[in-house]
């Protein structure tokens, strides 16, 4: 579904990616983990053309995206964006539109769906993210978690083949993280191809089919969560996990319990000198 081949990218003289290879099969959920600044967000943004790259290529659902930003690339990006939805860390809901209009705008303008049909579809999507009662509100009237769930519904309204989540819970209050992760987990359960950049190790362990560890612009290790969290082969993976996790193997029970969410555990696992 999504193939990244030998992706290289520099920015302002800095080498961001050396050569990244990653394949995401249909129905698979891949979690990108790694320290801040390791390139997780940038990699996601390269997939749907919000960032350009310098070498290698990306194939999404048969559409090949080459380096640069010429007209061929723009055409490829346009096709890819039709197939791939994206959810941002800062939600990026449209503040001047209601929840309903946030969701129906793109289907109407891009796909030409009649308003009534788009609205009906929006109602179903809001039900799916448990927000039917918020349909006529404006974004700033919603909590962060609610906004992010609307953003997910907005992306789903385009009926994407795959979803990209760019640290979807990083801007949320800890008590709001669970509701958003639950919606994402449900999507993955329904078979949505998903790539998620996240700091939620418990969630990655629970939901992802595979976990990719990024460090300094390279994928240092890819594998099933069990393998990555219990038996990491790379020293850099171990170092990273040691920093963010108290224990290696989180249990499924901890995911359901909001108090055990890694937002807390991550900070409390920092060495005293850093705290």
């Amino acid at each position: 579904m999504i193939e990244i081949h030998q992706l290289g990218k520099s920015f302002a003289g800095q080498r961001l990616f050396q050569s990244i290879d990653l394949e995401v099969a249909r129905g698979e959920a891949v979690a990108l983990i790694g320290p801040s600044g390791s390139g997780k967000s940038t990699l996601l943004r390269c997939i749907n053309g919000l960032e350009t790259f310098d070498s290698g290529h990306i194939v999404v659902d048969g559409v090949t995206l080459q380096p640069g930003d010429g007209s061929a690339q723009r055409e490829a990006v346009r096709k890819i964006r039709r197939q791939v939805g994206m959810v941002f860390q800062q939600f990026n809901l449209f503040p001047h539109l209601t929840v309903l209009d946030n969701i129906t705008l793109a289907p109407q303008r891009v796909l030409g769906v009649p308003r009534a049909v788009a609205a009906e579809q929006a109602r179903q999507l809001l039900e799916r993210v448990h927000l039917s009662h918020r349909i006529d509100r404006y974004p700033e009237q919603l909590s962060g978690g609610e906004q992010q769930r609307v953003a997910i519904a907005r992306a789903l309204a385009m009926k994407p083949q795959a979803m990209l989540f760019d640290e979807p819970t990083s801007a949320l209050d800890p008590e709001r993280v669970g509701e958003v992760l639950r919606v994402i987990a449900e999507l993955v359960d329904d078979g949505m191809t998903t790539v998620i950049a996240t700091h939620e190790m418990d969630f990655a362990a629970e939901v992802a089919t595979r976990v990719a560890v990024l460090d300094a612009g390279n994928i240092v290790e890819v594998g099933p969560p069990d393998h990555i969290f219990r038996n990491p082969t790379q020293e850099r993976t171990r170092a990273f996990l040691k920093r963010v996790l108290r224990r290696h193997a989180p249990s499924a029970a901890e995911l359901v319990d909001p108090n055990a969410l890694p937002a807390d555990s991550a900070s409390s696992s920092l060495p005293p000198a850093v705290q």
Binding site: N48, R81, G85, F88, Q90, L93, A151, M158
Partner: peptide
């Protein structure tokens, strides 16, 4: 914010 246009673009607009 830049994210507004990016959100619109990522929706295929």
């Amino acid at each position: 914010p830049r994210g507004q246009l990016e959100a619109a673009l990522s929706l295929g607009m």
